[in-house]
Design a protein around this nucleic acid. Sequence first.
DNA 1: AACAGAAATGTGACCGCTAACATAAACGTG
DNA 2: CACGTTTATGTTAGCGGTCACATTTCTGTT
Lengths: 333, 333
Amino acid sequence: MVRSRITIYDVASYAGVSHQTVSRVNNQSERVKTETREKVEAAIKELGYNPSRLAQSLVTQKTKTIGLIVADITNPFFFEVARGVQDTALAQEYNVFVCNTDDNPQGEQDVLTLLASQEVDGVILSTASSTDEELLTFAENYKPLVVINRDIDHPKASLVNVDIYKGAKLAVEHLINRGHTHIAMLSHEGHLPDHVRRVHGYKETLEAHDITPNDEWLVLAPPNLMGGYKATQELLSEHPEITAIFTYNDLMAIGAIRGCHDMGVKVPQDCAIMGFDDIKFSAMTQPSLSSISFDKYVVGQKAMQRLFEMFDEPNTTFAPIPLDVKLVIREST
Amino acid sequence: MVRSRITIYDVASYAGVSHQTVSRVNNQSERVKTETREKVEAAIKELGYNPSRLAQSLVTQKTKTIGLIVADITNPFFFEVARGVQDTALAQEYNVFVCNTDDNPQGEQDVLTLLASQEVDGVILSTASSTDEELLTFAENYKPLVVINRDIDHPKASLVNVDIYKGAKLAVEHLINRGHTHIAMLSHEGHLPDHVRRVHGYKETLEAHDITPNDEWLVLAPPNLMGGYKATQELLSEHPEITAIFTYNDLMAIGAIRGCHDMGVKVPQDCAIMGFDDIKFSAMTQPSLSSISFDKYVVGQKAMQRLFEMFDEPNTTFAPIPLDVKLVIREST
DNA sequence: AACAGAAATGTGACCGCTAACATAAACGTG
DNA sequence: CACGTTTATGTTAGCGGTCACATTTCTGTT
């Protein structure tokens, strides 16, 4: 029995005022006599009226909706970010569309167009597949954009950057302090800051300690459990001299631990494993995983807050938001 | 530089036709001469026009948007479901709002109202906090609703049900077959089918094998890593006679494995652990986790497909969609 | 009491589209 | 070639709001 929608006009005639007065009551803070305001509010309650966001959006050109683009919500890193974004958005009655790109450039383009057609007020992007130029084009003729862990230079794009380089440095230094010199790295293919910084941090820290990085010890694989598992097995069977592995993320590290186990390699005695992201599972694995920690929820939160700031001051250019990392030592090293 | 939106009228005058003709071209399949169609399409491309979904929605009363309500996207169970929903939705150019309730009834109500105000075309609900009555009220005066793992009887609500009872039975039978008789269960508080069926399956299977369930061995805790960890430690220190634990979900089980380890209890020799959900991590833990498996992605997929069916045939009442489970035996039992 | 000025309310247009109907063009047929 | 039919295109209204401006009502002042 979907009785047809109650409009502002229904309320108006019920309360004996004009539709505009109802609109004023709805949007608060307009000057309307308390008496009539009460009359209108009563009518609203009586009829069970609530305004159509669609209609509001059409005229105001704001949808109170944002898009969040992630590579894969299935990755604990992304969904903690997503929670941060969602909770912050919800508090201001914004809704968020979460879109997965599956780390595939076409997916990312599709999703951007879809979001464009849905007319979101802004976009938060935490993914790495599209090129910078594509992103710039998007920023150019579109909406405010907050980008996580990338470097792009455009007045309409704002950045939230975790100090990845420092994280990689801390990780490798920790391994070196533990006496390791044969340190491998499992990374994720790609040429974007998020990838590159980890690798740079790894290589440069080794060099700073007079260890020459061995390119054969740097393996690229998909950044998930299975990727880490397989890469570890291949790596260790070809290079048994390796005594420590630093991974792109915790997912790979957890796969790596299991990979070691299945080859009879003891963690951390025979091979130490060091992750990145410090997801919740890492404290519960056996052995528990040392990792580089930062608050993913806060990443999402800050990104959303920045987006709100951009809505309020469309012509301001904002400085990047830096986020610090710290080393968490557990059993795997 | 946001040049103001290109409308259907701009295209119309550029192509020298009426706006309605443009609309016809947009919505395909109308009878319009190929010649003019081409003219219009050229104009569309030339001007870079794309239609405003907002305006379309306002007149058609369809937003091509659905809401997905989950307890916590941070739980791997939910995000695999979410992926199934999203991918299926996207294929038809539907977008989905994911909302978290944090397993809190107020949160769920808030979220339902927010979705109502956003005017989604339908809702998929995979959570358990609101009461059946609240849900019925929602279904009554709202949109098509697909509910996962609950029993509610309303023509506007459709069900997708994983065979939880059978899962619990398989799990407990497996433990019994392994020779266990002192089998505890870690569950999640709540009186809803999703919870109750697991517990029933547990108790009734024990009874079917002439084992009297011991209520002290049934512990309620939050359904996450930490909940499983703590509950296991309390349980085993009070009841060292327990030799097997069946948990509400894999998150708790992974916590339980770690809990055992930290007490010096060997899994599976001293205590077997059996999970439920078969999340991806379960194959990678150490020891790997036996679990009850079902395809969570498919759950989301089916739910979304059902929602589409409900859009197409608003007055049909659909039968619940059943989903089978299977036992996956790994190292923890 | 008369009148200016502020406060409260009402009116019409418009956001960008589709639905329903009206009209014009093209086509066949006796 | 006059006529009804079909097919293609145009016109108008309205979805449910907000905005800008017009109008009315209420103040306070001389």
